[in-house]
Write a protein that binds this DNA or RNA. Structure first.
Length: 922
RNA sequence: GCCGGGUUGGCGGAAUGGUAGACGCGACGGUCUCAAAAACCGUUGUCCGAGAGGGCGUACGGGUUCGAGUCCCGUACCCGGCACCA
């Protein structure tokens, strides 16, 4: 607390005073408002303040939870703010703002519990969060903030949906095109034909139906054991009519363009794995008895000579047709499933497979299956191979049928072992069967073709060419990626801008009718059922508002009755395009003006993708959000609405701040604040408690809030502490008692410039001594490099070293203090602004150029030369930086300690790296 | 199982193949003070030694190199993602 004696001491009270004054001033002066090329935010983008051009920074935007923030939440926001402020001082026009992702399940559930409208509670939460964040002093352009629930924002989310609905993918040209061009191309406008090609389409598809919650769930909302994350209710696969997005059309571009963006390699790998592109072949196995053929997909056509049986998924359409009426002569008992005929065996097996939930399928990994009685012909060697039905083959991938090569596939090998099938080797290499590594083909020849002696890649190419020539197969590519299930039976989401006509065909609403607002409903919850009631049907909340659902509209051919779509969009919709809205947040005529989009997001050189210059967020969005956003952006690019091919050019994943939590002997959490560490243990009073490590949260009783930190230390201290804890991309534990170190640092800087008792300025106009100048310029060089590389922890360390030097030497020269304050400004902006003013400057330092270093001053007068003998340090010499190798060798040899270490042995070699190192080898 | 990432003092963490432990927390000692707090100064990997100095140290075992926390091979453990995707 400040006292009358030292009311100019930099404590939390003074910090709070400084911080609120500067926050008000920044707001009043519009310090962080970034001009646009055109529109309502237009300004001079070629202003002399911006010699370095534009810089667009984004945070993954927050979901405004009712619980409020803890100190872990702002980590990324502080980091982007530091980058933004630094870029501003290096001459960039910086676009940085923060919106809110405000639709979603938590708000809906809260509404169900309290009966209050989710909009009301969501807006309240946004208000709370804005207050907490404002206190951090983030340099956002507040004119550009928005929430996904704003009607103006919803309008454009719905508009983008209509663009996607109104286009198709031209695979030949590799681009999306308007649907009218498909109508011209096909010469028909029959909806039954056209609707099948749309990028947004309705289809009957299997979804996660949770009767206990009364809604379908996204895959990510279902736990690994097949229950809902919320409520732990069972989840069933049900076929339901749903909206889908044809993201699979973009699979190749989504994979290929990963090479053109600057993202962490692990995230790229996760996206590649998720898309799961695999090259292989479709191969036809004839079934001579019925005249059918079964097409299988394989990534290893080179092992075709080792295929000893064929497996169909239980749901495969050919299963019933090919199953024979009696077991062939000599059928092994193990193949029959104990049934009298193949038809009975297959029917029983299919029934059992259908009854299994996904979770159960995952639990029983033992290979099961039954023989269909049918044989297929291996197209390369004419051998008759048995056809099985087994649930280890999945219906949704490839063709739902495989050729089994037990010698070179682990799953096939397991199955073959259980069913007593042969496992020939057709690839030679080091290792037992099943051998899946690279090797040389063996036993792989017929009269026309031989793969023997070829490597895997060559053998694949050779056999595919032969199959294509014979019309028995084709080289092909498949993907793991599925189309994006885009509807939810929820209230709190964007309504679809779609109505159905009397034929139940989806019709797009015209742009003039956007946005379609959510109606008021009597009850926000969907109808729920007994948790295990598999036969129940979902009833979306919007379906209950009959007067909203049934609507009379004139869509061009006179007023008619229509039925509205009652599903809503998933939570991902808003975040799939919000980067665009920051560039032109109030535009009512277009999603973003092309000039604004091109300036902030457009590619700056031939072949670049464009996109946000820096996007910071957690790695948990590595796949879903980032894939959806890339997909939408590419559609808009194809349709000519944006000039950038990718939404986010550079991605950075920040780590998390975690915390210790403590449990007593009953396993209950105790308040972490009250736990003391002593005698190598942890205690609550006299009671020993156990320590755990994990997320910060109310339930673990280990939350620390930003407000606690503002109160005790101030926002600048919190910012500096969070930036100095460690590298930004690494998770680390919070330690409140260490925060004081950052406060002491700021206090030392403050004391250099301000008299704590009187408030008088202490900076002098005397020039600094040579040693100090050298330290200063080395600091500037190092801090600039650290800031460029986002190594804020080491930047802070260097500033502390400089400050400690000045404190120790009593240097208060303006020549040093001014650059110190400017370098501190991105990290601790309020106190820096205050000191800048007290150093006699008017106006904010936000656009003052960041200090530059003088290379001639970076050189030190002497350097420490390390002398090693056999790689071990034996002496240190203070030498001139210009010392030559010979001089250094002579000095080293003259050192008594070095001679003692050499101990009379013959010197075989001397390695010198002037002027820092001499290594004597004996 | 597969694919990523990691493992450095009591703690968070620094280290272009060249002084391991910057900076901070904590701890210990000192200055100031009637006293305390704050501040400032000093010490702080570990073992041996009065000291000078020396031995050992970056999960573990090997290797490359004049020199390895850093590069290579293998092992263990921790965290994250995917999981019968042919």
């Amino acid at each position: 607390m400040s006292t009358p004696e030292n009311s100019y001491r930099y404590d939390s009270t003074l910090a709070a005073d400084i911080e609120s004054r500067w926050q008000e001033r920044w707001d009043a002066e519009g310090t962080f408002e970034a001009p646009n090329p055109t529109g309502d935010l237009a300004g001079d983008v070629s202003d002399e303040r911006f010699p370095a051009g534009k810089f667009f920074i984004m945070d993954m935007f927050p979901y405004p939870s009712g619980a409020g923030l803890h100190v872990g939440h702002p980590l990324g926001y502080i980091a982007t703010d530091v980058v933004g402020r630094y870029r501003r001082m290096t001459g960039h026009n910086v676009l940085h703002a923060l919106g809110y992702d405000a639709f979603g399940l938590p708000a809906e559930q809260y509404a169900v519990q309290t009966g209050r409208h989710p909009r009301e509670t969501t807006l309240e939460n946004i208000g709370t969060m804005q207050r907490q964040l404002r206190r951090l002093g983030l340099a956002h352009d507040k004119r550009r903030s928005f929430a996904t629930i704003d009607p103006e924002f919803v309008k454009w989310t719905q508009w983008i949906f209509l663009q996607i609905f109104d286009s198709w993918y031209d695979a030949e040209r590799g681009t999306a095109r308007p649907i009218r061009e498909l109508v011209e191309k096909l010469g028909t406008d029959d909806p039954a034909v056209i609707d099948q090609h749309r990028l947004a389409y309705v289809s009957e598809s299997p979804v996660n139906w949770c009767p206990g919650l009364g809604t379908v769930l996204a895959n990510e909302e279902v736990t690994a054991d097949g229950r809902s994350e919320r409520g732990n209710f069972p989840v069933f696969k049900r076929n339901l009519k749903q909206w889908n997005m044809r993201i699979t059309a973009y699979a190749d571009r989504l994979v290929d363009d990963l090479e053109r963006v600057d993202w962490p390699e692990p995230v790229k790998i996760m996206q590649r794995n998720w898309i799961g592109r695999s090259h292989g072949a479709r191969v036809r196995f004839d079934l001579p008895e019925t005249g059918d053929g079964v097409e299988v997909f394989t990534t290893r056509p080179d092992t075709l000579f080792g295929a000893t049986y064929v497996v169909l998924a239980p749901e495969h359409e050919l299963v019933e047709r090919i199953t024979t009426s009696a077991w062939p002569e000599g059928t092994q008992d193990a193949w029959t499933g104990g049934a009298a005929t193949p038809a009975e065996a297959v029917a029983a097996y299919r029934a059992k497979a259908a009854a299994k939930t996904d979770a159960e399928r995952q639990e029983d990994r033992e290979k099961t299956g039954v023989f269909t009685g049918a044989f297929a012909t291996n197209p390369v060697n004419g051998e008759a191979v048995p056809v099985f039905v087994a649930d280890y083959v999945l219906t949704g991938y490839g063709t739902g049928a495989i050729m089994a090569v037990p010698g070179h596939d682990a799953r096939d090998f397991e199955f073959a072992t259980v069913f007593g099938l042969p496992t020939p080797r057709v690839v030679d290499g080091e290792g037992d069967l099943p051998f899946t590594g690279d090797g040389v083909a063996v036993n792989s020849a017929n009269d026309e073709i031989s793969l023997d002696g070829l490597g895997v890649a060559e053998a694949k190419a050779r056999v595919i060419a032969w199959l294509e020539e014979k019309g028995r197969g084709t080289g092909t590519t498949t993907y793991r990626l599925r189309d994006w299930l885009f509807s939810r039976q929820r209230y709190w989401g964007e309504p679809f801008p779609i109505v159905y006509d009397e034929h139940d065909r989806p019709i797009a609403l015209p742009e003039s009718m956007l946005p379609v607002d959510l109606p008021e409903v009597p009850d926000y919850s969907p109808r729920t059922f007994e948790p295990d009631d598999v036969t129940s049907e979902p009833e979306p909340p919007l379906g209950r508002v009959q007067e909203w659902v049934h609507v009379e509209l004139d869509l061009g051919d006179g007023p008619k009755q229509y039925r509205r779509e009652t599903n809503t969009m998933p939570n991902w919709a808003g975040s799939s395009w919000y980067e665009l809205r920051y560039t032109d947040p109030h535009n009512d005529a277009v999603v973003t003006d092309p000039a604004n989009e091109a300036y902030w997001l457009g590619p700056r050189a031939e072949g670049e993708t464009g996109g946000v210059d820096l996007y910071v967020g957690g790695v948990e969005h590595a796949v879903l959000h980032l894939l959806y956003a890339r997909f939408w952006h590419k559609v808009l690019f194809d349709l000519g609405h944006v000039s950038s091919e990718e939404p986010f050019h550079r991605l950075f994943n920040q780590g998390y701040i975690q915390a210790y939590a403590y449990t007593d002997d009953r396993g209950a959490y105790v308040p972490a604040v009250d736990v003391q560490e002593r005698d190598g243990g942890y205690f609550l009073g006299d009671q020993p408690v156990a320590r755990e490590y994990g997320k910060m949260g109310k339930s673990l009783k280990n939350s620390v809030t930003p407000d606690d930190m503002y109160e005790e230390y101030g926002a600048d201290t919190l910012r500096v502490y969070e930036m100095s804890m460690g590298p930004l991309d690494v998770s680390r534990p919070w330690e409140t008692r260490a925060v004081v170190g950052s406060q002491r640092f700021l206090q030392r800087v403050w004391r250099l410039a301000v008299d704590e008792e009187t408030g008088a300025p202490l900076a002098t106009d005397e020039p600094a001594d040579a040693a100090t100048l050298s330290t200063l310029h080395r600091t500037i060089e190092g801090v600039r490099a650290d800031m460029d590389a986002m190594r804020f922890n080491t930047a802070v360390a260097k500033l502390i070293e400089l400050t400690n030097h000045l404190t120790r030497e009593g240097v208060r020269s303006r020549q040093v203090l001014e650059p110190l304050v400017l370098m501190l400004a991105p990290l601790a902006p309020h106190v820096a602004e205050e000191l800048w003013t007290r150093l006699g400057h008017e106006g904010s330092l936000a656009h003052v150029p960041y200090p530059a270093f003088d290379a001639s001053l970076v050189v030190e007068e002497t350097v420490t030369c390390v002398v090693q003998v056999q790689g071990k340090v034996r002496a240190k010499l203070e030498v001139a930086p210009s010392a030559t190798e010979d001089e250094l060798t002579a000095l080293a040899m003259a050192d008594a300690n070095v001679q003692r270490a050499i101990d009379g042995r013959e010197v075989r070699k001397v390695v010198v790296r002037a002027p820092k190192l001499v290594n004597v080898v004996v």
